[in-house]
Design a protein around this nucleic acid. Structure first.
Lengths: 94, 94
DNA sequence: CCCATTCATCGTAAATCGCCGATGAACGAA
DNA sequence: TTCGTTCATCGGCGATTTACGATGAATGGG
């Protein structure tokens, strides 16, 4: 949790921006629900091409919301520990 | 609070997208803090041109986060009642 | 009735987004 | 080594965002 307000604004903005698309919210919900890792099943759950889903995952990863670990030929994604809590705290601190 | 998950996703995405810029987070914080209405003072608080701030305000308004009431030659903005609570609930429900 | 103030909107330019198909890289299996 | 699978990345397209200055509409003061 940043003490500086400017930092808090930028951090919250970064997280919020990452959630600023229904598909990415759906991905987050999916990963929280299974609270473990998932892979290309995410693609099956969404009505988008594989490359599109991959880009959404990239955005969530770059925002620090999720993490992807290589597991053989596939990649398992899971929620970055503490990320949701941080988001909640930032929204709470509005 | 929507019961349908798709609706919840779209709503959260809409709110999050509106918060997806540091300036807009700063505006929200400003309005929450004064928990009343403010006008062009917002412009003075931000390092942007008046027209730019006006656009940010428009986005927040369209997302349902703030409201603007005309008061003579100026416009007073305030947080839409319940909007922050709704946002918190949606983030909580992740 | 003017004029200044306040704010929204328009027009514009650069950057980013969102989507796709195609390609590339990494890995396991045969 | 040669496939097939899985996923990331590239290239491209139209749409959207972000920023600005300029203009326009509404209001109140003189």
């Amino acid at each position: 949790m940043p003490t500086d307000e400017r930092e808090a604004n930028e951090l919250l903005a970064r997280l919020a921006k990452a959630l600023g698309h229904p598909a990415r919210v759906a991905i987050m919900r999916l990963l929280v629900r299974r609270e473990g890792c998932v892979c290309g099943e995410i693609v099956d759950e969404l009505p988008f091409a594989q490359s599109t889903v991959s880009q959404h995952l990239k955005q969530l990863k770059e925002a620090g919301l999720i993490r992807g670990e290589v597991d053989g030929p596939r990649v398992c994604y899971c929620v970055e520990p503490g990320a949701v809590a941080l988001l909640r705290a930032l929204v709470e601190g509005l």
